[in-house]
Nucleic acid binder design. Structure first.
Length: 885
DNA sequence: TGCCAGCGGGG
DNA sequence: GTGTACGCTGGCA
């Protein structure tokens, strides 16, 4: 039987471990395969006789057998005699390991912290999404809900297709009260379920804990009955994937706790013995596990995506915000505050919540499927062997460790354990002593560069290339360099030695070469592939391969890594620094150009001609010639040309990229480190900053840009800016009364409550939009609900917006342009606060603000308008204090 | 510049 | 389950 692996675990029965594979066969039929007779083991180095004696005396019943082996360890050419200790029960391993660690005659322990499922999969050269061929006999068992077989033999097979994944999205609506929402005191009102393929003729169902009916709505006498039906439906639909929006942190923990309280059987995994199991880890993180199924939370996945793909970055990540951004589609308009009222209302009222609830699941499912969020994770699973659930839950570490375990073992190397606390402390101490130096960043001269185009060059995959070229690996670093011929070693700029690859390939460089080879092969296939589905998969695959090859440098310098060697991390960056510095001086000498900025692996070079075509030619020429000098493993790529380039400081710049297209030239603005897509900036800020940059970069007309800003300031003052652009957002996190410090959004809630005491529950609409209105007193007290401001024709505080929203991001830009900020305001004395603030540099008499009561000094006026001690705040100058306006 | 505290999504 | 665990940002020293 052929099977593609989705999940794997084990059970321990009558002194036997049974490994279980959950997966699907080539007919998409869910299967569970049992494999008996594989046992856990780990390795120990030390006094073999004493170790054996100790184990016999203390753990006789736990030990299956002990063997002697010859294995390689970290560092070059270290071969040792080790004991391989087999146990009966995987769950005993950690206790025995910890006992052994205490013994003086034990030198080191290896691979004693590898999850049993990975131990098994590694030894059978399989992993997540592998296809396996199993020689099997059918078996009957009540322990598993899907078809089961006993596997006698498991073999990896190469198969290119993927099974299709059945997906179920769900969403809860719960009751809540003044203290928020809590499974102890609140109940589940309804659950929506949306199916990726029809279930009993329905695309979706909503279960309601009230006697009510409707299309695809099922009502129940009680919450308990509803939850029992939920379990039945999940089991009957039998999804591979369960999804929803923020289900890891809300719906699952709430659901499981309600099931506990009501005594509902929590078995909706594919195993009949294991409850769905939900655990709070850390302060704000829950993890749920369902044996045989995979939980893929749309919210979690979007948040992960955003890190890799900055294009996906949003200001907020509510389901409504994300749906709007992706599908131009909104949630059904029901605010939390309405739910209790609707729930106790008419049938139509309840059905309104039902449809609201249903749509949330629909959207969560659409996000997962239409945005194809799983593709990349599935490819990462295939590349590394990590199970999909572990890829989704974990980060880089689990992926790398699964991959390297296999690679180490197949070369007769042992993988060290994760460091224990004392080892980590030792590493930290050493790092503090020696220091870990990062990449080279050239201090730029701030300003606008638009006289000549800027050529951008960067090292292709710099750190992987360095690892490759100099054979940098924990298995090639040399402990006693004096014992080896200098010609056989690479010496890194910080003076560490690695055996050359001509003598012995390092494992990490080997893995990297393999990943890169697979990637170029994949990209080559992509060029001729026409099928869109296949193309998408290939794209995800090459991306996964790239992600993996970029992870190794970080992993080797990661303090809790199994492969942490400080000299390695330092060697890699030192090679990088020396390479980029060499290239910089080389380019400047050979081509008579200026490198105006450089960071880690990229260089910005001012062209020597303002002809675009000639600039492209020069970029190409530099790339080819310098790469040739750098040798075959290192490539300096010609990345792009900026027609103009505006840099404020290290890692903060914006450029106008120019590229050739069929119709002429194409332009695109790129920003680094100066984005204002943040929730504490109002939209006017981002908008005006973008337009300012636009004028500067495209037209190079500083005056026009300043005039534009002047226009914005004028609009603000005359009240011509739509209030929507001025909204600032903050979250309410606790009971209003427990806020000690006066804050704008809290004050807004108080005002709203006062105006509308009947409907007080809306204070749990946690995100509060507000604007600052004109008037006297504290800014916080002048914060108002935008709707109220509109209805009552209130004026907004333009000076607040100028000072706190518009100017801060603009100030740096103006000073980089060498513009005195007074140019923005002319000699208009009406705006005296502004002119003082903005002439900070030209009039050094201004020093800041000071509290006249306690003399505490401030750089800026505190938001609450007075000092923490309650004292009044005045301007502080060289000549003393001055009243603020 | 580096550390610490707090927050996010959900109802 | 040989599992013990997020990641950013603003405020502040």
């Amino acid at each position: 039987m052929l099977l593609q692996i989705l999940d794997c675990d084990y059970v321990y029965l009558n002194n036997k471990t049974i490994v279980r594979f959950f997966g699907k066969n080539e007919h998409n039929e869910p299967i569970c395969a049992f494999y008996e007779g594989y046992y856990p083991y780990f390795y120990v180095i030390g006094d073999n006789e004493k170790i054996t004696k100790f184990l016999e005396q203390n753990f006789k019943n736990d030990i299956l057998k002990i063997e002697e082996k010859e294995k390689y360890l970290l560092f070059y050419n270290i071969k040792r005699n080790v004991l391989k200790i087999y146990l009966f029960d995987p769950s005993k391993t950690s206790a025995i390991r910890d006992e052994l660690r205490k013994l003086s005659f034990i030198e080191d322990i290896f691979e004693a912290d590898i999850l049993f499922k990975y131990r098994f999969m590694c030894d059978h050269d399989i992993g997540g999404f592998s296809w396996i061929n199993i020689k099997c006999v059918p078996t009957r068992t009540s322990t598993v809900k899907v078809k089961t077989v006993n596997a006698l033999k498991i073999e990896k097979v190469n198969e290119n297709k993927d099974i299709s994944l059945k997906t179920l999205a769900f969403d809860l609506e719960t009751s809540f009260d003044d203290s928020g929402v809590d499974p102890e005191n609140n109940e589940i009102l309804m659950i929506s379920l949306v199916f990726s393929e029809k279930f009993n003729g329905s695309d979706s169902l909503v279960l309601v804990s009230k006697r009510i009916g409707g299309k695809d709505v099922i009502g129940f006498e009680s919450e308990k009955q509803m939850l029992e039906k939920f379990v039945d439906i999940v089991n009957e639909f039998d999804p591979d994937i369960m999804t929803g929006y923020n289900i890891q942190n809300f719906d699952f923990p709430f659901l499981i706790q309600r099931m506990d309280i009501l005594g509902v059987c929590k078995k909706f995994g594919r195993c009949n013995r294991k409850n769905v199991f939900c655990m709070k880890i850390g302060s704000n993180i829950n993890r749920t596990s369902i044996s045989g199924r995979i939980i893929a939370d749309s919210y979690d996945m979007i948040r992960k995506e955003e890190k890799i793909n900055p294009k996906m970055r949003l200001k907020r990540y509510g389901l409504g915000d994300v749906s709007l951004a992706f599908f131009n589609e909104t949630k059904i308009d029901v605010s939390y505050s309405q739910i209790p009222k609707l729930w106790n209302g008419s049938k139509e009222d309840i059905l309104k919540i039902v449809e609201y609830c249903r749509k949330d699941s629909v959207l969560a499912l659409r996000i997962l499927l239409e945005k194809r969020l799983l593709d990349k994770h599935i490819e990462l699973s295939k590349i590394t062997g990590t199970l999909l659930q572990d890829i989704l839950n974990g980060g880089e570490t689990i992926r790398i460790e699964t991959l390297i375990l296999k690679e180490f073992n197949s070369r007769n190397f042992l993988l060290p354990c994760k460091p224990i606390k004392s080892e980590i402390d030792k590493r930290i101490e050493q790092r503090n002593k020696v220091g870990l130096k990062g990449a080279f960043v050239l201090e730029p001269k701030p300003g606008l560069y638009n006289k000549y185009p800027i050529i951008v060059l960067d090292f292709h995959a710099m750190y992987p290339s360095i690892i490759n070229k100099f054979n940098i690996c924990p298995t090639t670093i040399i402990k006693n360099p004096e014992k080896y011929d200098k010609n056989d070693m690479n010496e890194s700029p910080i003076g560490a030695f690695f055996i050359k690859k001509e003598i012995k390939n390092g494992i990490i460089p080997d893995i990297l070469r393999n990943l890169l080879k697979q990637r170029s092969k994949t990209k080559k296939i992509m060029r001729t592939e026409k099928n869109e589905e296949v193309l998408r998969r290939l794209y995800s695959k090459q991306l996964g391969l790239k992600i993996m090859s970029n992870s190794f440098y970080g992993y080797m310098g990661f303090i809790v890594s199994r492969l942490y060697v400080m000299d390695i991390a330092n060697s890699i960056t030192s090679y990088g620094r020396s390479m980029i510095k060499d290239v910089k001086s080389d380019v400047e000498k050979r081509y008579d150009v200026n490198v105006i900025y450089a960071d880690t692996d990229s260089l910005m070079i001012e062209s020597n001609s303002n002809d675009i075509d000639k600039t492209f030619e020069l970029g190409e020429k530099i790339s080819v010639e310098i790469s040739k000098d750098l040798g075959e493993d290192i490539l300096l790529e010609f990345e792009k040309v900026f027609k103009s380039f505006f840099i404020l400081a290290k890692k903060r710049y914006s450029g106008l990229e120019i590229s050739k297209s069929d119709t002429g030239f194409k332009y695109k603005i790129e920003m680094k480190g100066i984005e204002t897509v943040r929730r504490d900036w109002c939209n006017l800020t981002s908008e005006s900053q973008n337009e300012f940059l636009n004028i500067i970069l495209k037209e190079g007309n500083i005056k026009k840009a300043i005039n534009y800003i002047k226009g914005v300031l004028l609009d603000l003052k005359s009240g011509n800016v739509p209030i929507e652009k001025l909204i600032i957002t903050k979250g309410i996190t606790k009971k209003i009364l427990s806020y000690k410090v006066i804050q704008p959004h809290v004050e807004v809630v108080k005002k709203m409550q006062m105006r509308n005491p009947v409907d007080s529950s809306f204070m749990y609409d946690k995100r509060i939009d507000y604007v600052i209105t004109k008037g006297v007193g504290l800014i916080s007290k002048r914060a108002e609900d935008p709707k109220y401001v509109k209805e009552n024709n209130m004026k907004i505080d333009s000076e607040y917006y100028i000072r706190n929203q518009l100017l801060p991001p603009l100030e740096r830009m103006l000073s980089a342009l060498g513009v005195d900020k007074s140019e923005l305001f002319g000699s208009d004395k009406q705006t005296s606060i502004l002119s003082i603030i903005n002439n900070k540099k030209s009039k050094p008499s201004f020093r800041g603000f000071i509290c006249i009561k306690c003399n505490k000094e401030f750089d800026r006026i505190p938001l609450i308008g007075i000092c923490e001690c309650g004292g009044e705040i005045k301007l502080l100058t060289d000549k003393g204090t001055v009243d603020r306006l």
